[in-house]
Design a protein around this nucleic acid. Sequence first.
DNA 1: CGGTCGCTTTTGTGATCACATTCGCGTCAT
DNA 2: ATGACGCGAATGTGATCACAAAAGCGACCG
Lengths: 190, 190
Amino acid sequence: MHGDLRPGEALTLRGIGKMFDVSMTPSREAVRRLVADGGLILSASGRVTTPELSNERIEELAAIRALIEPELASRALPRAHIALIERLQTINGTIAETVAKHDEVGYIRANLEFHRTLYLRAQAPAMLALTETVWLQLGPTMRALYARLNRTEVPHNHRLIVAALRAGDEPGLRLAVRSDVTQGLRMLTV
Amino acid sequence: MHGDLRPGEALTLRGIGKMFDVSMTPSREAVRRLVADGGLILSASGRVTTPELSNERIEELAAIRALIEPELASRALPRAHIALIERLQTINGTIAETVAKHDEVGYIRANLEFHRTLYLRAQAPAMLALTETVWLQLGPTMRALYARLNRTEVPHNHRLIVAALRAGDEPGLRLAVRSDVTQGLRMLTV
DNA sequence: CGGTCGCTTTTGTGATCACATTCGCGTCAT
DNA sequence: ATGACGCGAATGTGATCACAAAAGCGACCG
């Protein structure tokens, strides 16, 4: 989910087991779970790799994000008190640091934490879980995107989101979230 | 997904293995996959049961369906030629038979097949997959619903959906799908 | 009669093994 | 130089086992 793995990277059960000092059995269960959620691809021969998404698939996943995440933000809005907004700003600060350090994985992690922090307030665990499976599918691809993007600052839309939360501006919030979600991924489909 | 299991029904790895004449290993993998998708619940002690959904959870899952399925229908609309519409009507006929026979599991199966047949035309596999995980979570609960409902005919909304497809009426289609999805589940939250 | 304690059975976990398949790579022939 | 062939290493699969935890159940006590 955080882009630790590149698209198309291969994994082996024994290799994962060694990584975490366990046998093949727990590795298999973890892999099967990730495969079920689309976070890993199981080839016909049983080999496991991270997904290499086609442009159509990326657009589709972006469309799903654009559908669900504004809804989550909208549900979180009435419950977003000042402490939450300040926390979001702190995360934006962390994002700025990762940008300065060219830390791609850290950037993705902080970016998703920004969204998750907001959506947790929506009190919609199933919706959030679905969204996270989409993030999971996009993880390796996002890394490829942000590596080639070379940001210089915190995404503008994150500031718009915070501003809309402060103002209690529901349509503005939906729009800002939708833009934030769509924009980065649009750049990927080359 | 089809309501073969009641809400809260317990399963054991060895039991599943015997059912399909395999050892515990494949049972575990299948269970882990279903747990990952929310189709089964893993208790703290590792025991596995079907989910007993709270009213809030049911409403949330209904909201997700109401969000995604109209979108799928809308995307399928331009590609819905006459053969597809006739197939949908055939499925409605099957639904009528299951209603007459008070075959609850058959009803759920045919109902979902109606939706899946339409959505397959949307050319949006990720969106369809997400929707099916929602169906999976609702499976056992749906059975409880339709058992208590005692339908007498094919849902009105299914006919509205077919009519909207024929007319190329996109707003009408979205509305009919949304109603079909919401209506049944609203009845569950008592 | 009801509740609590303790034992037996059931169950999930993680490790290991044998086996079939597949992959990777070097060799050889054209 | 290029392609196909073949062999050895690596990999996934399913079964089985030992173990610890939990659940079910009965007996015993108040």
